[in-house]
Design a protein around this nucleic acid. Structure first.
Lengths: 285, 285
DNA sequence: TCAATTTCTTGGCGAGCGTCACAATACTGA
DNA sequence: TCAGTATTGTGACGCTCGCCAAGAAATTGA
């Protein structure tokens, strides 16, 4: 019998039931993880380890870095060796990838008329760690902090908020409301700037735009398209989580969100098919 | 020039802009106040003081008690002597009575589908008195406390909540949401029992039911009808303020609200016209 | 595998909020 | 007007909140 995948003490279990962003985008670990989510998870047959490494190398990762990255994903329980030198994506990882799919590839924006989800919670001081966890995951989900103990989300995140609460076994400490038309003291932009860390989110977008600036791979070959696509997804992946996609009326003057989103959709559209073909080519060898 | 009406230091000003319940129902002061709201305020001509006293006596108040009660209402600025021995209801008092009219005489009940108003507020520690005021008026308005700093009201109280916030100059510290379908940890009844002081509200209803138990004045004369009606209104007046009229799904097993409300409507219907006629009779003398 | 760096967890801190108790005030009825 | 009573305003307390910093742990690339 094989050893169970090693899990970090507290958070990884929840992170697995939820979603994690434990590697920095652009790093070898992150890119391999992206590749796993994009291609490996759809393979029904086990993948020979050299093929996986080739996929990573083709995306610009050095061979030894890819080696270690894969080993570490095995340790984390995302990948699983089935035979000597062959790998599969584990079931919980597949589920996790599937959950993230819609959010990443069809990022949503709110309109001014969209509704909200409010979460009012109060946990006793004895469970302080839980509070921290909740705050962390709420931020990671795109939540804003209205006032102490009251969080706000776009309504399209309703289900995911409940998932967080359930996964952390905090459902009993929270009350949810579906709300419309908030009436703040000032205007909408003031409220948004107070509830969300817009500076941080803006930085994410600018980093994405910088990373993907030279990625016009419309007329390049399949290899370049593949590499561009993986880079794109890897740089993009976390953004639709942290950015709630606030309606235009709540955002500051020059907000990079729209440009960023458009860039993603354009390059994605332009590279996706050829990237897939190239990945299949490597995997099918 | 006459002295301005004496006002208590802080609260009466706000209470005048809002509504006050500074006298206990059933007391002479309260009954005279009820009579002022029911009849005196509709008189265009000044009312001779003896007539006002007769109205109070006819409702079961002793003559000297009526005297002092009227004097005190003058001190409070609700009544105003225009000539020697003649009275009018002051303009702000008329406005206050008018505001209370709909709430008292057409008490509302929520249905299970009705929406809510959420008020999230946060005031700095330096304005602690304001916090107390807010809490007091929110309770007096039928609000429930969801968690620290988050109050909930039936949506039909939306305007009145805003009035409280404006009158206390607290608009800038509060954010309002119109919400639907709260999702509590437990069931609806548990949530209501936690958010509102249902025991206190229940006591109010039972007190009302006890006071109005023997008031079947359907076939009595105009005097009895008048007396019953004033007693009824006086005993009832505060209830629609403190009771939000929660939907049936949120109330405990044996809730007196429905019976109480029905009793009010029945006796009101049965006595109103005759009571009015009797009051006109006394006033027209 | 290993060291540098970054993250994350953990505990302390100040602030906001409701509750409670007490003193001052206001109300009540004779 | 006056004494008895109830209510209200005020301050202290405990709880929970987010924030911050230091220590622990994990991640990263070679």
């Amino acid at each position: 019998m094989r050893c169970a995948p090693k899990l970090a003490p507290a958070s990884s279990l929840a992170a697995f039931a939820l979603d994690d962003f434990e590697s920095r985008s652009g790093s070898a670990a992150s890119v391999v993880r992206t590749i796993a989510g994009l291609y490996l998870r759809h393979q029904s047959a086990p993948i020979p380890r050299p093929r996986a490494i080739e996929l990573a190398c083709a995306a610009g990762i050095s061979s030894p870095a890819a080696q270690t990255a894969i080993s570490r994903l095995i340790d984390r329980g995302l990948l699983e060796p089935v035979q000597t030198g062959e790998l599969t994506v584990t079931a919980p990882a597949k589920a996790m990838f599937a959950r993230g799919n819609r959010r990443i590839f069809t990022p949503r924006n709110m309109s001014n008329a969209d509704h909200w989800v409010l979460v009012a919670f109060s946990v006793p001081e004895s469970l302080r760690a839980l509070r921290h966890q909740l705050r962390k995951h709420f931020i990671q989900l795109g939540g804003g902090l209205v006032s102490a103990g009251l969080w706000i989300f776009p309504e399209y995140l309703h289900a995911e908020v409940l998932e967080v609460l359930n996964a952390l076994e905090a459902r009993r400490y929270a009350t949810l409301f579906v709300a419309q038309s908030p009436q703040y003291p000032g205007d909408a932009r003031q409220a948004a700037a107070q509830w969300w860390d817009l500076a941080k989110i803006s930085k994410l977008h600018h980093a994405f735009l910088a990373t993907t600036a030279g990625l016009d791979a419309a007329s390049a070959g399949e290899h370049i398209a593949y590499r561009s696509y993986v880079t794109l997804i890897d740089a993009w992946r976390a953004i639709p989580y942290l950015d709630p996609g606030l309606p235009e009326a709540m955002l500051p003057e020059s907000w990079p969100g729209q440009e960023s989103r458009q860039r993603f959709l354009e390059i994605s559209e332009s590279c996706k098919v050829r990237a897939q073909r190239y990945a299949s080519l490597l995997l099918g060898r």
